[in-house]
Write a protein that binds this DNA or RNA. Structure first.
Lengths: 250, 250
DNA sequence: GCAAAAGTGTTAACTGTACACCCATGT
DNA sequence: ACATGGGTGTACAGTTAACACTTTTGC
């Protein structure tokens, strides 16, 4: 039986976990893995090779699960409470045959995990791939998450909190929306994240004033009403806005 | 010879480093440790006990170096590049007698460090205590830092960047200023961090509008001119402002 | 023609900026 | 008395929020 990784090649006691956000049907979703022989779900995660940069490990996990390379990925928190490592956890993994007995010692370690959050375009993720320990993947609306393993619920909450904080001061949407999108679609994203309605006209004006959008000469056809203009983000200006923020006090 | 810590009791390959900021004589300063038998300086840091929460480890480091307990301490980044662990580093430590040879293997590990930044009231830190590996401590203005060990320069830069980001959206000053302070003193802190002059009158109005200050009926006496009013932060409102930010777009 | 969605415009309220003026204190 | 720093006020400019009107499209 081939092992999914070599414990001797990995940084001990350290893992990365990715909260992968997608936006679909006016809902914010996260990609979760269904564990084998277990009713619980888990965040896509992995270990850090001894010769691998921390951030690269997160990129690798993301690539392996979604096939995507160029996405927004940001480190947001290190989770290091002793209590996040439940005593019987490794034992349970072996008993339920989720892992090979030779890996029990590895999973009995006390782990610190570095949380990353990723923003991906939902439709670009064709068929997410489960990892060695999981049965399959699924997108879940953050409003109705299934039971999650260990402290993964908390990790999702913290990621969401960080994402909402980002929304307040930085642009968002690139990586979450298709390359071309309409103003109402962008507004729907904001309204979902903010959990409140915004004025259509003021939203448009404000958004345009940030100067990160490019108006195309195309329209979203096929809708039941007036065809809305398609916009795209100006990648350079978007990056600028990410770095400097949209509205600082001083 | 007594060892300063038991490698077997510590989380392998993991450390915490604290960038401790203080404000004195209109300069932002950081507390640094002078390494033994070495011209380089280092951030106060330490290892994480196996039965110790990550955040607790940072609190402990801070307590051991400054004697302070109640201070602003925030995790800001995990530094995990492979390249931050220089090949000959452990060997050099042994050769210069900075560490006992029995610790060489421990220091040869690849380390990931979690960066924390702390805001402390400069005058409250009586006499900072060096640790086992260092000769003495000193406050350094961030504008003229001495040569720092490994990637500690980068850690300071990232902490400063984070602090300046905080300044843009959140209140600052509690923990950096004495309990009671004048408006011009608070302004000086902002001007130092922002590296620019602000209008005295507009600053006052804006600051008061945030509703996080309490005006006392006392004055700072002894100055050469009109005695300025002393203010204090309202702890509850300050906390609120920290959480919700001062001016969000939406 | 009507309802619903999208684009454009207008005004009033609010906020921020650039100042002027007065007060207190030590020399 | 005056120089300097501190407290308060005001007017103009710029921004935001609330809302009206017009256009397009499917039924």
């Amino acid at each position: 039986m081939e092992l999914p990784f070599q414990p001797s090649q990995c940084q001990p006691g350290l893992s990365v976990d990715c909260v992968i956000f997608g936006f679909h049907e006016n809902e914010l979703k996260v990609l979760l893995l269904k564990l084998l022989h277990n009713r619980e779900w888990a965040l896509p995660g992995g270990f850090v090779m001894l010769d691998e940069d921390l951030d690269r490990a997160a990129v690798r996990v993301l690539r392996e699960r979604t096939g995507l390379k160029r996405i927004f990925l940001r480190q947001f928190h290190a989770f290091g409470e002793v209590s996040r490592n439940l005593p019987g956890h490794a034992d349970k993994l072996v008993r339920t045959q989720a892992i090979h007995p030779s890996l029990q010692a590895w999973f009995e370690q006390r782990f610190i995990t570095i949380g990353f959050y990723a923003l991906v375009e939902y439709s670009q993720v064709e068929e997410p791939h489960p990892d060695y320990f999981s049965e399959f993947c699924r997108w879940y609306s953050i409003r109705e998450l299934p039971p999650l393993m260990l402290d993964h619920q908390r990790i999702v909450s913290k990621a969401l909190e960080t994402l909402r904080l980002q929304l307040k001061y930085q642009p968002i949407g690139l990586n979450l929306l298709p390359e071309r999108f309409t103003m109402p679609e962008l507004q729907a994203l904001y309204e979902t994240l903010l959990e409140k309605k915004l004025d259509r006209r003021n939203f448009q004006r404000k958004m345009l004033s940030y100067d990160i959008l490019v108006k195309t000469d195309e329209f979203r056809q096929g809708g039941a009403h007036k065809a809305p203009v398609l916009y795209a983000f100006d990648p350079d200006r978007y990056q600028q806005a990410l770095q400097h923020g949209l509205n600082s006090i001083w």
